[in-house]
């Protein structure tokens, strides 16, 4: 456990001071700022209209402003998180420091777990930056914090899954470029795999695919509900990919 934390803290410091993290944060904040500004002005425009002209819609800041922003966070993270996690293991393999980890008296679980934690802590910094926008809005208007907190939890779990996937992609090769491409590919597959349930004739397969309906699991959090099955779904997805990474690390001992 101590070794896990040693690796996590070292990698966190390295990642959070790396140019790739600065660049990713810069691009993310540029896109979010642009979009958030537009959303806010549209929301202001809508709220200035008399109620009969809103086509029967009840105006709600969470539904009409925040969900839009959070969906964009998620969309960008599909591509940004693999860029952050790409070097976690592949860089070590390339520079020869992987041998240092393998010859140290630590388990493969500590290596995989520590790397995941490092990636997640860095992503958490990015998430906190993303949530500055809705929190900043509170300075001008009052709204219920509950749905926003549930969304925050949802984004954390979703991002954790991306980190675990990116970590696994990074463990597969020495090349960071390959890691980032694989990471994005896996993330997209995760989002789109549920589409298969409509195409499948097999009942068991389609019910399995229905369960791994990531958009549905994720949007349940955005609507403000914390539902145990979605919570467990994301935790098991994270556990699954960290476990796969642990197997890859362990495999070098018997290959």
């Amino acid at each position: 456990m101590k070794a896990l934390w040693t690796i996590a803290w070292k990698d966190f410091k390295t990642l959070v001071t790396s140019p790739i993290f600065f660049l990713t944060t810069a691009i993310c904040t540029a896109i979010w700022s642009f979009n958030y500004l537009r959303s806010v002005s549209r929301f202001a425009q809508m709220s200035s209209l008399p109620p009969q002209m809103r086509q029967g819609q009840e105006l709600n800041i969470h539904y009409h402003l925040f969900i839009d922003h959070i969906s964009l966070i998620n969309l960008i993270f599909i591509f940004a998180i693999p860029a952050i996690t790409m070097r976690l293991i592949s860089e070590e393999k390339k520079s020869g420091t992987y041998g240092l980890l393998l010859t140290s008296p630590i388990t493969a679980t500590s290596i995989a777990g520590g790397k995941f934690l490092a990636g997640f802590m860095v992503s958490l910094v990015l998430i906190l930056v993303a949530f500055v926008y809705p929190l900043g809005t509170r300075a001008f208007t009052d709204f219920s914090m509950g749905p926003l907190l549930a969304s925050f939890l949802g984004v954390c779990l979703m991002t954790g899954t991306y980190v675990a996937i990116g970590l696994f992609a990074s463990s597969l090769s020495q090349s960071q470029v390959l890691s980032v491409i694989l990471g994005i590919l896996f993330n997209l597959i995760l989002w789109l795999i549920s589409q298969g349930s409509q195409m499948s004739d097999n009942e068991i397969l389609s019910s399995v695919l229905d369960y791994i309906h990531v958009p549905q699991q994720f949007f349940s959090f955005l609507k403000g509900t914390i539902n145990t099955s979605s919570f467990l779904f994301f935790l098991s997805a994270i556990g699954f990919f960290v476990f796969l990474t642990q197997r890859v690390v362990e495999s070098s001992r018997w290959r």
Binding site: T14, T17, S18, S95, G96, Y98, G99
Partner: peptide, 8 residues
């Protein structure tokens, strides 16, 4: 090759 992290 010495196993060192270049950025440390």
């Amino acid at each position: 090759t010495p196993p060192v992290y270049m950025d440390m």
